[in-house]
Design a protein around this nucleic acid. Sequence first.
DNA 1: CGCATATCATTAGTGTACTAACTAAATCCG
DNA 2: CGGATTTAGTTAGTACACTAATGATATGCG
Lengths: 154, 154
Amino acid sequence: MVDELAEPNILALENQVCFALAIAARTVIGLYRPLLEPLGLTHPQYLVMLALWQESPRSVKNLSAALSLEPATLSPLLKRLEAAGYVTRERSSSDERMLDLTLTPAGRALREVALTIPPRVASALNMSVPELVQLREVLHGVIASTATTSAAAA
Amino acid sequence: MVDELAEPNILALENQVCFALAIAARTVIGLYRPLLEPLGLTHPQYLVMLALWQESPRSVKNLSAALSLEPATLSPLLKRLEAAGYVTRERSSSDERMLDLTLTPAGRALREVALTIPPRVASALNMSVPELVQLREVLHGVIASTATTSAAAA
DNA sequence: CGCATATCATTAGTGTACTAACTAAATCCG
DNA sequence: CGGATTTAGTTAGTACACTAATGATATGCG
């Protein structure tokens, strides 16, 4: 009651960056759902495929660092990608603690199909390329800020 | 191979807005975790509390619209908030199909504690207030773009 | 060499979050 | 009155994402 005058904004839902971030992320990932569904991929799986298309034999640890996902999250996810036939999981011959994650021919071929996805998402977003670039830059700023924070804390 | 020259960027992880969005959301929500843990709230539960602090007797449907969360997601979440003693769930007297979600005294009191959270998150983000406002505006732009898209599609 | 430590992957358990299909109660309207 | 709609809940299934513990392999030091 009094608070609504004394503290009008601090806890208002519309003013929370975290709220906007959570909704925007869910919304945008939702845009990918129908596009990825024909490829048999979820959005996190798509991100893993993007990482593997950039560099193919990678370890779980390496992927974990690249995607900021815990190994515990990636492990079952990678098994699903293996079951889908896009990836093979083999112990590294040089260090048997590590797993060599390698694209199968089907996984490599999927890249051609995936090339159509970013333009379709961009058009679904109704945003110009400069706007998208600005958004990405701002988000990278957030990620970088928190990265330095946690590094300083550690 | 050839693609890496012909299509250098389209599928690069660093260029994906969705990737930046997913990481930023996870990272920022992660900042809340230690702050919300003493209150016994998860981040989605915190968003529900924010909504109830703004307007207290609300229905599930109303919350669902405000938070862009499905009733099927809210239903178990609200039961946890009830179990925590922050919310009561009672059938509306005027329309027994609806649930009146009301703050308990403990739920209302929690707001005072919550007032300390946004500034602490802001400082953890290492971003200036104008930067945070810009980020929020850009994100609201994303949400609005997709909202109009789905409205047009529907 | 051999044990302690570190690293990497996996598992278990909890908690969202989504879709989809279905139940059930209450209200609205013809 | 009676069917259609609305609202909430439930269930089943899939998939993240986290923490913490476990297992297995490497490595390094005495």
